[in-house]
């Protein structure tokens, strides 16, 4: 697998457009970051790529193969998803949840083979949750739960992994640990990773390329230095900011100062009395 190519997709719920005419690529061995304000269509794109909602128009191609008409179970062998705040049954053990990752490979009658168990064991070991195998989900912390979901998707064995806000609700230590893990997995296994993030600094630190969305349209794309700029942040978030190079790696660091003042009556501004 080399790349996932998204060509001119438009998405929406009930004739209400969310994403318009968007094209981009997710390349093996690379983390693509999707950034943009709330409601700009980030989660919708992940749901459409994994066919939870239907694809409006446009094409999705894996190398030269069109994926639009693939069945759910075929697609589940190609694209794995770590959703935002996934719900998991409290009484299932960690091993049982991770084993569910093998679902696309099992028919109604086959039970998991030794290979399935081996892959599951590897996924748990690689995400550092082997010692939690027998624990129930209700006993886990937020960071541990996130690792379980990542292990489940890793066990799914897909070349493409989409993650929707994987660091939401985690402290800085666990945010870094989860993103380090994702980066290592991406490089070791030549995975094509797409990740949505609200935190622009984390996005700049961890993503090889960024795509910035505004109202469901592509606003900017490129390296973190090209995308995370004061001008773009003003245009997309209506925020004034200062950008500094990180002292260790020169990647952009955003310091937000205040809301951009506009004469546009559509923007809500605080009255200054």
């Amino acid at each position: 697998m080399e790349k996932l190519e998204i060509q001119n997709i438009s998405l929406g719920y009930d004739h209400h457009p969310v994403v318009t005419n968007l094209s981009f690529q997710v390349i093996a061995g690379e983390i693509l970051g999707l950034i943009g304000p709330n409601g700009c269509g980030k989660s919708t794109i992940i749901k459409a790529l994994s066919r939870v909602i239907s694809l409006g128009s446009g094409q999705i191609k894996l190398d030269d193969k069109v994926l639009n008409n693939l069945s759910r179970s075929q697609l589940a062998k190609i694209i794995g998803v770590v959703p935002q705040n996934p719900s998991m049954p409290d009484t299932f053990t960690v091993a049982e949840i991770v084993l569910l990752g093998r679902t696309p490979y099992l028919g109604l009658l086959r039970q998991e083979s030794a290979t399935d168990l081996r892959i599951t064991g590897w996924a748990m070991e690689r995400t550092g949750i082997t010692n939690l195998a027998g624990r129930r989900m209700s006993e886990l912390s937020g960071g541990e739960r996130q690792r379980v979901t990542i292990a489940r998707v890793l066990a799914q064995g897909t070349g493409i992994i989409l993650l929707d806000e994987p660091t939401a609700n985690l402290d800085i230590n666990h945010q870094t640990a989860i993103l380090d893990l994702i980066r290592d997995l991406c490089q070791e296994n030549k995975l094509a990773v797409m990740i949505t993030l609200h935190d622009l600094n984390l996005a700049a630190q961890y993503c090889d390329r960024l795509i910035m969305l505004k109202d469901g349209r592509l606003f900017a794309q490129g390296s973190p230095q090209q995308v995370v700029t004061a001008e773009n942040i003003r245009a997309v978030y209506a925020m004034e900011s200062q950008i500094y190079p990180h002292p260790l790696n020169a990647l952009p660091v955003v310091l937000v100062s205040h809301k951009t003042e506009t004469n546009n009556s559509n923007n809500i501004s605080l009255s200054k009395n």
């Binding site: 075929q74 998803v81 949840i97």
Partner: peptide, 21 residues
């Protein structure tokens, strides 16, 4: 026959669909 899909559906419907069900 549908015992295993039912297991996967214990996650939530979105995740079950993303697992190919």
């Amino acid at each position: 026959l549908f015992a295993r899909p039912l297991n996967a559906m214990q996650l939530d419907e979105e995740q079950a669909e993303q697992l190919g069900i």
